Simulated scan of single mutants.
Amino acid sequence: MVKKVFLLAVAFLLFSCEKEEEIPADILSEEKMVETLIEVRILEGQVVNLTLPLDSAETLYGILEAELFQELDVDSIAYMKSYEYYMTHPAKFERIAEIVIDSLKVRQQKY
């Protein structure tokens, strides 16, 4: 069910009627950014739920985030650059954020 909703959202994103500018080659695609942001938000929630002291939580998060980026085959610098790019393109960022939020809601309802 979660995969179907995610795929439907990605398909909607791909076949949007709007004609937009090309995303630069060094920027993560919208689809990859959605996937990455979903996993980053889940990781953030997991670390917060551990109720560790702030310095320990930040250290643990840094380690787990590096592992996550490696699993997703995403360079942390490319992620930050892509995040900044999408923040300066509000329509694109809003689309991405809506898909991330909807996907997280579906996952939350599942559990």
Rank of each mutant, 00 (worst) to 15 (best):
Y61D: 08
I63L: 13
P90R: 05
V48R: 14
F6H: 10
E20R: 07
K19C: 02
A57I: 05
V2W: 10
L60A: 08
V48E: 13
Y83W: 09
V47L: 01
K110G: 03
M87W: 12
K4M: 04
L50K: 13
M33Q: 02
A66P: 03
Y86T: 09
V48D: 15
K105M: 12
L50G: 07
D26Q: 11
D55K: 08
E58W: 08
R95I: 00
L50A: 10
V5R: 07
R107M: 12
M87L: 15
V5K: 08
E20Q: 06
K4D: 06
E22K: 07
L28K: 01
K81A: 11
M80Y: 10
M87D: 15
Q109L: 08
R41T: 06
Y111A: 11
L104R: 04
D26W: 05
P24Q: 04
E21I: 00
S56L: 10
D55P: 01
Q46W: 03
A11G: 01
M1V: 10
V48H: 11
E98M: 02
V74K: 03
V34F: 09
T88S: 15
L28W: 02
E20Y: 03
D26T: 09
C17T: 04
S29Y: 05
L37G: 03
K81F: 06
L52C: 10
V40S: 07
A57G: 04
E35R: 13
H89R: 14
E84G: 13
Y79H: 06
S56E: 12
Y83F: 11
R41Q: 15
F6Q: 02
L68E: 07
K3E: 11
A97I: 04
L104F: 05
S16T: 06
I99E: 00
E30K: 13
P24C: 02
K105D: 14
L52P: 09
G45D: 13
Y85E: 10
E94R: 05
A91N: 10
N49I: 04
N49V: 08
T59W: 12
A9Q: 10
S16M: 11
L54C: 03
I38C: 05
T88I: 13
I101M: 09
G62N: 15
